[in-house]
Simulated scan of single mutants.
Amino acid sequence: MREQPFDAAQDLTDAPRVGGTQRPRDAATLILTRGGSRPEVLMGRRAPGHVFMASKWVFPGGRIDRSDFTAASAGDLAPGVARRLEGELPARRARALALTAVRETFEETGLVLGRAAPAASVAGPWREYRQAGALPDLSVLSYVARAITPPGRSRRFDARFFMAPAEALLSPEPTAGSGELDEIAWLPLDQARALDLPAITRFVLGELAERLDHPDRPLPFVRMVRGRHVVEHRD
């Protein structure tokens, strides 16, 4: 199994240091894949007006919301996924982060990862998802990477990257979503790597390519320690 390189210099260019002591906020990202011999991945381009990573191609995702702690689901995290997450944070927060990935993907792309269920009326950010007639299915998620934005950036996230197959979607094609992403597309991995990507997204794409052949490879954790980027691998 090959270890993926991380471009530390590009990472500093992506999000220059602006000062301050912001603490990273928990966030989650969902990598959707489809295809066999030539796998494709779903990616979106961030609108130019964003303060953070403007015009970069990324996976859908965002920060955790209070509603993610109480949202209903049709399936629980697989035991191995739950074990890895719960080695880092409490079980309730681990589940909430998995739900964050599902909710943010729906908001940004219109794609519903879940099982068909009677439409329900709920308040808050889950309202439109539940009105679409679905419940999120956490059992299809794999946990594939973690990354913390370096100190001093305008936005800092402690991001968990999840992966799921397109077969778990109730509809295969994205919509315009919330408008946070101004273009959304299924892309072959080689085409995705040629886009204008943040360093962490490029790193995770490489990790994804390896993981498709070796699903049990150790999970990478990217962060800055004493001023240097470090990639630590955890079983």
Rank of each mutant, 00 (worst) to 15 (best):
G75M: 07
R66M: 08
P48S: 02
P218A: 07
R84C: 10
R228Q: 15
L141E: 09
G87C: 12
E180H: 15
G35T: 01
G206C: 13
R211A: 01
Q10W: 14
K56L: 09
G19I: 04
G227Y: 02
G80M: 04
A119I: 10
R127Q: 11
A192D: 00
G36C: 04
T149V: 14
L135G: 02
W57N: 02
L12V: 05
E40M: 13
D68F: 03
W57A: 00
D213H: 15
A94P: 08
A117R: 00
L77R: 04
D26V: 07
G177Y: 04
V204P: 07
G152V: 03
E40G: 06
A159I: 13
R66Q: 10
L169T: 03
V18D: 10
G19V: 03
P220N: 06
L187R: 04
A168S: 09
L113M: 06
G177A: 01
D7H: 07
S171M: 15
P16M: 05
I31W: 11
D213W: 12
D216L: 13
Y143I: 11
R156C: 14
D68C: 02
A74I: 01
D26T: 06
E210W: 10
D196S: 10
G61R: 01
E128M: 11
L189V: 08
L111W: 06
D76W: 05
G19E: 11
